[in-house]
Computed example of a mutant assay.
Amino acid sequence: MSEKTNIYEIAQELGISTTTVSRAISGKGRLSEATRQRVLEYIASRNLDPCVRKRKYTDKKTGNILVTIPAEKDYALLPYFMEILSSVYDYCVIRGFQVMMAKTGANDIDALKTIISKHKVDGVVLTRTITDALDIKFLKERGVPFVAIGSYDDKTVSQVDVDQMSGCRDLTSILLRMGIRKIALFCADRTHVVTKSRLKGFLQAYEDNDLDFDPQMIFDGAGEVFKAEQLTEEMLKKGVECILCMDDNICINVLNTLRKNGVRVPQDIRIASFYNSQVLNEYYPPISCVDFDIKELGTMAARVLLEALDGEEKAGKITMGYNVILKESTK
């Protein structure tokens, strides 16, 4: 039977470093053939079974943090992602970390893989969550500390999110109690977890108010300008009372189309958004919305990540609050 030992003891006996012993055993790294044979012959002659500690990703420190943003066309330019990036940067830099950025898509995480493979960062902040996320699976497999902004169906993943479902339920309920019935819901990409959460809240409002909703009044692709314009014009022809937008980008697309066609808000049609932003705040009339603090969201994600790097990792979900703000667009 082989005798258990560690590579430190072998190194001490041979008068070499533990790194040299590890390279000889693994066959990886630069090492002369003579030295390799010397180590292997020593192990074989004494029938030793060396325990080589597998190096953890966290063993090496770089002082860098990575923030991923969407690779899809123009998504990275949306105020939401820019504000998240800025808040993570502000929190990390004053604590001695530098912040890097990489673009990832639902089916393309090559930029993330390259950075992690080269060990350029200590940890990662993911600015969105997608169903069956490749980035989350990859980071877990590699043992990389990370935090996801958004919800994900895995309790071992550190998550920071707003109570999206409740906020969207509350705004929708208010509109229904105002007597508005012909509502169209404009979505972008339903593979995004945040879209699913907001949709769940929207439908829950109908259930809470004992009302039926026609699923054919849910429309995808409104994140694209052309599609949003086409859908908006269709809703005007159908006499829809209110267009509810999943986010600020969709809402801006809708508002621009209405302005182009000389349609008045709220006199001719009501508009509301499940997410507010600084850009949306500049539109007139002011838009009814679900409002939450994006800076606080990014800061909390950065805080959770740095605490994890400090050995205080607590997997689980932090849920932050929201406000429903009624403005002129739904009067």
Score class of each variant (00 low, 15 high):
residue 2 S to N: 11
residue 3 E to D: 08
residue 9 E to D: 15
residue 17 S to V: 07
residue 17 S to K: 12
residue 19 T to E: 11
residue 20 T to E: 05
residue 23 R to G: 03
residue 24 A to C: 09
residue 30 R to Q: 14
residue 32 S to Y: 00
residue 36 R to M: 13
residue 41 E to T: 13
residue 45 S to P: 05
residue 47 N to D: 14
residue 50 P to D: 01
residue 57 Y to C: 11
residue 66 L to Y: 06
residue 67 V to D: 00
residue 68 T to H: 12
residue 74 D to M: 14
residue 94 I to H: 15
residue 98 Q to M: 13
residue 99 V to E: 02
residue 100 M to A: 12
residue 103 K to D: 00
residue 104 T to P: 01
residue 105 G to D: 04
residue 108 D to R: 02
residue 109 I to Y: 09
residue 111 A to P: 03
residue 112 L to N: 05
residue 118 K to N: 13
residue 128 R to H: 02
residue 128 R to F: 09
residue 133 A to Q: 12
residue 152 Y to S: 07
residue 157 V to K: 09
residue 164 Q to H: 11
residue 164 Q to I: 02
residue 166 S to N: 13
residue 167 G to D: 02
residue 177 R to W: 04
residue 192 H to Y: 15
residue 194 V to L: 11
residue 195 T to A: 12
residue 198 R to P: 00
residue 209 N to L: 14
residue 212 D to P: 05
residue 216 Q to I: 02
residue 216 Q to C: 04
residue 236 L to I: 10
residue 236 L to P: 04
residue 239 G to E: 10
residue 240 V to L: 06
residue 245 C to R: 03
residue 251 C to Y: 00
residue 268 D to G: 01
residue 269 I to W: 01
residue 274 F to H: 03
residue 277 S to A: 12
residue 282 E to C: 15
residue 291 D to Q: 13
residue 297 L to T: 04
residue 301 A to Q: 02
residue 301 A to E: 09
residue 321 G to N: 14
residue 330 T to I: 10
